[in-house]
Nucleic acid binder design. Structure first.
Length: 673
DNA sequence: AGCACGCCGACT
DNA sequence: GTCGGCGTGCTC
């Protein structure tokens, strides 16, 4: 450690390359030329030579050092693209951990975290930076209301992880502006964090939720303290909002799933609304959901973490049960008025479309007073296999997976483990007759409207979403998930397609339905009746007593017995048969210190195109071992052998690599559908 | 990806 | 003994 710093001490930049190639997923050392010394700081975008000068790769400087880690000749950084440090150390650490967890590339995660550069936007932002305005004043000491005196506040102030049951009501945040009460809770939590001088990230599933949250926030924090980071906004707007997050002043950063990667300085809170919504599942590699990213980031940063929903997911329930997340419920309690009718749709009321007469009468009466919500299933379900006699969905007798019909006249086989269901019989009624349930397109809104002559009908669905409706009488027909917020709340709610929604083939149908129904019921006016048709049992009980977490808790023992998520984790491996075989055989079979942890493999099953897919199930303790093993299989596969092919028609010889196929995906719940 | 290196068959 | 095709492996 002698002071031997020569005047021209070598400066090394460790660079993450922007490349999808798994074998390039590590840091590369480059020498920083004297001319670039001032700009070559961690987080900036650079261009570097890669393999024989001339080829240029883009990347980010992750760190600078004077210690050479590489024992070869160093190339020099070609260019510092921009002096803005867009990849902050915290986000880099998050990206690395998240990618390791999912056997993916850090650069894939960074791609989600850092929006593409917009030169004009960046220049404008840099100019604005120099003439910074004075700090704004926040409303003093905001508090989270509706959960008892300072209960949530003190949990958040202590940097805890909490699962909050949302308050099932609507709320008028400013004259004429109504939002779900949940949005107020999240806004209050964010405002409190901001007032303490720290930033908050709030992730919501979609744009409609984001709108409500922004409206709730607008009355609590100054507008210029709010950033919206939304994948559907234009690149320029997104990059502008992203750059503002890099500023030192605390902010509330709102957006959909990738907002959990926002570069918030001094992060005090991550809040996630409705973590089980499938929109929180990232469709891009390495497919890590908002919930998992939030958990990793909370662990790294020590910020508070708040999950809120009307219906607790089984994933969160597991975390509550192991004591990792603390549960909170509204105080005073708010109990919606839910009325289940076991009547089959249309059984007693042909005159009223398929609405049972009790529900029809309730709706008729409520329509004199204000809007009534009718929730219907989304049209066009994929055909599923079910018992012909009792309609129980058909499941594999080996592993409880979903049965699928491969071809038109084939014997059904298990989608998960591939077992042929030759001697299938229904577990519920012992029938041996199986049938294809082709769910129709459903009744149209017009048909429903005809049941209530003379009433204004408003439709809200995926194509024509409607965010709000006023307080005047109207029949609001909405597909699940697209229900508008009504001023003052709906005077009655009819959940019509219970049976059809439950017929969907998925491990998670019950909890999905509970979530869809709960979210709709939460839009009711105080004590307005919510009638759910054709649903009984534990699901109806959970809704009537408004204790969805108990339903989630009751699911877990079964999942543990069956070795299904969230009690174990899953990873699917797709590729050529030999490749998948190799990947499976190199999996570890034990983890030191966790001798009771187990791992098993289902399949492989045919995945089309000459590919197969295997599903690996493993205990949480196995996570990093499995990820590391699969990662090295991916690298081995992508650097592997070539195959030569001679074209017989032309006689030309071509040498090419078959596209290396070994796709790994962790925690994909859709595989169970 | 794209390019260099090296190992094995056919040639001056 | 040497040229070059193509498979293999590496990229700071």
């Amino acid at each position: 450690m002698a002071a031997q710093a020569a005047p021209e001490q070598l400066l090394i930049a460790r660079v993450m390359l922007e490349s999808p190639l798994p074998q390039l997923d590590r840091l590369f050392d480059y020498a920083v030329p004297a001319a670039l010394r001032g700009q070559a700081t961690p987080g900036v975008r650079v261009k570097v030579p890669l393999r024989s000068a001339g080829r240029i790769a883009r990347g980010y400087i992750v760190e600078t050092t004077e210690a050479v880690e590489y024992s070869g000749t160093l190339s020099e950084i070609d260019e510092v693209t921009s002096s803005v440090p867009v990849l902050t150390p915290a986000v880099w650490n998050l990206a690395r951990r998240v990618s390791e967890r999912a056997a993916g590339s850090a650069s894939d995660v960074v791609r989600l975290a850092v929006p593409p550069r917009q030169v004009r936007v960046e220049k404008a932002w840099q100019l604005e930076q120099q003439s910074e305005n004075p700090p704004v004043e926040y409303r003093a000491n905001p508090t989270v209301t509706g959960y008892g005196e300072r209960i949530i506040d003190s949990a958040l102030d202590a940097g805890k992880r909490v699962a909050v049951a949302a308050i099932p009501a609507v709320h008028e945040v400013s004259p004429g502006v109504w939002v779900g009460r949940w949005a107020v809770t999240l806004a209050e939590a964010a405002a409190r964090t901001l007032a303490s001088g720290r930033s908050a990230i709030v992730a919501v599933p979609d744009y409609r939720d984001q709108q409500q949250l922004i409206e709730a926030l607008a009355v609590l924090v100054p507008l210029d303290r709010i950033s919206q980071l939304d994948a559907r906004q234009p690149n320029a707007d997104r990059y502008r909002a992203f750059l503002r997050c890099l500023e030192a002043a605390p902010r509330v950063i709102v957006g959909n799933r990738s907002v959990v990667y926002a570069p918030a300085e001094n992060l005090g809170l991550i809040a996630v609304w409705d973590d089980a919504d499938p929109l929180h599942n990232e469709p891009l590699s390495p497919y890590v959901s908002t919930r998992d990213v939030a958990l990793v980031r909370q662990e790294q940063s020590g910020c508070a973490l708040l999950f809120a929903s009307h219906s607790r997911s089984t994933w969160l329930e597991r975390l509550v049960e192991i004591g990792y997340v603390a549960p909170f419920a509204p105080d005073p309690a708010v109990l919606p008025h839910v009325i289940p009718t076991a009547d089959q749709p249309g059984a007693d009321a042909a005159a009223h479309a398929r609405i049972p007469s009790a529900a029809w009468n309730t709706a008729r009466r409520a329509l004199e007073d204000g809007p009534v919500l009718v929730q219907v299933a989304r049209p066009g379900y994929a055909p599923v296999l079910a018992c012909q006699d009792c309609r129980t969905p058909a499941r594999c007798r080996v592993c409880e997976g979903t049965l699928r019909l491969g071809g038109a006249h084939q014997t059904p086989s298990c989608e998960l483990c591939g077992a042929i269901a030759a001697d299938w019989h229904c577990r519920h009624c012992e029938s041996t007759r199986i049938r294809l349930v082709t769910a129709g397109t459903g009744r149209t809104a017009e048909e429903l409207g005809r049941a209530f002559p003379g009433v204004r009908v408003i439709v809200s669905d995926g194509e024509r979403p409607r965010l709000t409706v006023d307080a005047r009488p109207a029949l609001v027909v909405a597909t699940r998930g697209a229900e508008p917020v009504a001023a003052g709340g709906y005077r009655a709610i009819l959940l019509l397609d219970g049976e059809r929604m439950l017929a969907r083939e998925s491990l998670t149908v019950a909890e999905d339905c509970l979530r869809w129904w709960s979210n709709a019921i939460a839009l009711a006016a105080p004590r307005a009746p919510a009638i759910i048709v054709g649903v009984g049992g534990a699901l109806a009980r959970a809704l009537v007593t408004w204790s969805q977490h108990r339903f989630a808790a009751a699911e877990l023992p079964d999942r543990r017995t069956l070795r299904f998520p969230p009690m174990v984790r899953l990873a699917t491996v797709t590729g050529r048969p030999e490749t998948v075989e190799q990947a499976i055989s190199s999996l570890p079979d034990s983890v030191e210190g966790h001798e009771s942890a187990t791992i098993d493999v289902l399949g492989p099953v045919d995945a089309g195109d000459g590919l197969v897919r295997a599903t690996i199930r493993f205990d949480y303790a196995f996570g990093s071992e499995v990820a590391r093993s699969l990662r090295s299989s991916i690298i081995r596969n992508s650097t592997g052998r070539t195959k030569r092919q001679t074209s017989k028609a032309t006689g030309t010889k071509t040498s090419f690599r078959p596209p290396p196929v070994l796709r790994v995906r962790f925690d994909d719940t859709e595989i169970l559908e």
